[in-house]
């Protein structure tokens, strides 16, 4: 009884936040969903375009390809980084963490333009490559998928590191010593002991980065230069420039459903509570 009343108290505390969320967040999403089946005329006409319209299909294809590449590269870099940090001495660990986290405090806009400056035709990278004589013509490094992936990986690496590092820190370092003592080479100890034990963190990081990448707007917009379109920019184009609300909200809905589906799928594999920083049950 007492517990019941206490519970009711907690719910009362949550009520304002709950109302705010409903009004500002859930309601617009429901409205977006509604528009996608009412504009320009009621029905599933907009969703039919998913199957018939080559433009929509190309955007979805580009989005999936870029997100998959971004996730793969961010995981690879992030894993190596996490591994080094997890096995470093505590004093050294703090510096590494700072190095990983600092980019998070720099505006995503600033970082995107910095990459444009570096990667454009007369940018530092092309100049360097030409000076060394590796290439004759400047390479097209930006305003295409390559540029987008570079910018997105740079943004995502910290988000890949954090869940993986959390997982690796729970691995008892004595297990690696035990593996060596039992006859495993460094490589075998890593492959048979460390890697399997770090797998949950790796999967968690993958889900986090992939979902995050799906909705990316600023980085692809700037580094894609309007030539390579991804889902978020395409939606903005439909709604603000072409005033085709139905099409824009349709893809937005598809995006939301895709994200939720990914989450549901992976909640069966990993503990989502842990992925989003909660304590282990």
């Amino acid at each position: 009884m007492n517990a019941l009343r206490r519970d009711a108290g907690w719910w009362a505390l949550l009520l304002p936040a709950f109302l705010l969320m409903t009004v500002l967040y859930v309601a617009p999403i429901v409205q977006v969903l509604a528009i996608s089946v009412t504009e320009p005329q009621p029905g599933f006409g907009n969703y039919e375009r998913l199957l018939t319209n080559a433009g929509v299909q190309r955007v979805i294809g580009t989005t999936l390809r870029v997100c998959a590449m971004t996730t793969a590269l961010a995981l690879l870099l992030g894993y190596a980084l996490s591994y080094v940090i997890a096995l470093a001495r505590p004093a050294v660990q703090r510096y590494w963490l700072l190095v990983v986290l600092v980019p998070l405090w720099i505006s995503v806009l600033v970082r995107a333009f910095a990459w444009v400056t570096l990667l454009r035709q007369q940018g530092l990278v092309n100049q360097g490559l030409q000076a060394v004589g590796l290439v004759d013509e400047p390479l097209r490094l930006v305003w295409n998928e390559f540029g987008i992936v570079v910018g997105m990986v740079h943004y995502m690496v910290p988000y890949a590191v954090l869940p993986m590092l959390a997982g690796m820190r729970e691995i008892d370092p004595r297990l690696l010593a035990a593996a060596r003592g039992l006859g495993a080479s460094r490589r075998a100890a890593f492959l048979r002991v460390f890697l399997p034990l770090s797998l949950p963190g790796l999967v968690a990081a993958g889900v986090l980065v992939f979902i995050f990448s799906l909705g990316f707007y600023i980085t692809p917009a700037i580094l894609g230069g309007g030539k390579t379109l991804m889902a978020a920019e395409w939606i903005k184009l439909q709604i603000l420039d072409l005033v085709r609300w139905g099409m824009g909200t349709m893809l937005a809905t598809v995006l939301v459903v895709a994200i939720l589906a990914t989450l549901v799928l992976f909640s069966r594999v990993v503990d989502l509570n842990r992925l989003f920083g909660g304590a282990r049950a």
Binding site: D172, R174, L175, A177, A178, A179, R180, G181, L182, G183, A184, S185, V193
Partner: peptide
């Protein structure tokens, strides 16, 4: 260590 072929029981066992 891996070339010495010694069996080892660690403090706390260190089972995988």
């Amino acid at each position: 260590p891996e070339r010495r072929h010694f069996g080892m029981v660690f403090q706390g066992y260190a089972l995988f």
